[in-house]
Amino acid sequence: MSVLNIKNLTKVYDNKKKAVDDLSLSIEAGDIMGFIGANGAGKTTTLKAVVGIHGFEEGEITIGGHSIKKEPILCKSMLAYIPDNPDLYEHLTGYQYINFIADLYNVSTSLRSQALKKYGDMFEMTSNLTHVISSYSHGMKQRTAIISALVHSPDLLILDEPFVGLDPKATFLLKQVMQERVSSGGAIFFSTHILDVAEKLCNKVAIIKDGKLIASGPIEAVKGNQSLEAFFMEVQDA
């Protein structure tokens, strides 16, 4: 069964513009799918529909076989989302924020302690988590958001531009964590503009243009013999 299945998704905004038009794709356990497209192509709209932030007019999204429309709480408990700009509760400390998220996902005290120790140390945030988030840099906020997303060991990680604002070491560590998650049966769906990273990290790729999916599938099958960048430029200009 697919971890994530999007079938004929169509999302129309107030101004009648079709942000996503009849988009279908599926992600299995063990997949890392890169979601590529120009600015305003419909990537974030799709990701937000997947995580239940906004509704959609047509189609169906299922997570682990459950509909996000009919069983939103169950679906959300299986996934974690990190937006492109991690606006966290600035008045809380990093610890308080992660603890808050862990409470919402009903994570036991021992599991959250383990996760905090592991990822706090890995992302070199442990000493900073006692400070209020308002004092954090963009990268520190991003790292806090990543730790909070991993605290409940989600089956599906949805990341919107996860590498923006991260320093080289944190970028390396995030890639390592992503591979670790899929090797333990999870799945990852993330948007990115960094095609080199997508090419090296993902086993699947989906390309969206003006709300329509123009290519998706195993990365080798999609791009053929050329580089992902060359393929993307070709379909983008077509």
């Binding site: 809380l92 610890y95 005290t109 006692t130």
Partner: peptide, 29 residues
């Protein structure tokens, strides 16, 4: 400037209900 008082505080990692977590967060906000 944010209050210096609320900084440098390590919370006890103790599980509580989602409602209580939301309530505490809301009050703090």
């Amino acid at each position: 400037t944010s209050s210096r008082y609320i900084g440098n505080r390590k919370v006890k990692l103790k599980q509580q209900s989602p409602f209580l977590a939301l309530y505490k967060k809301e009050f703090a906000r």
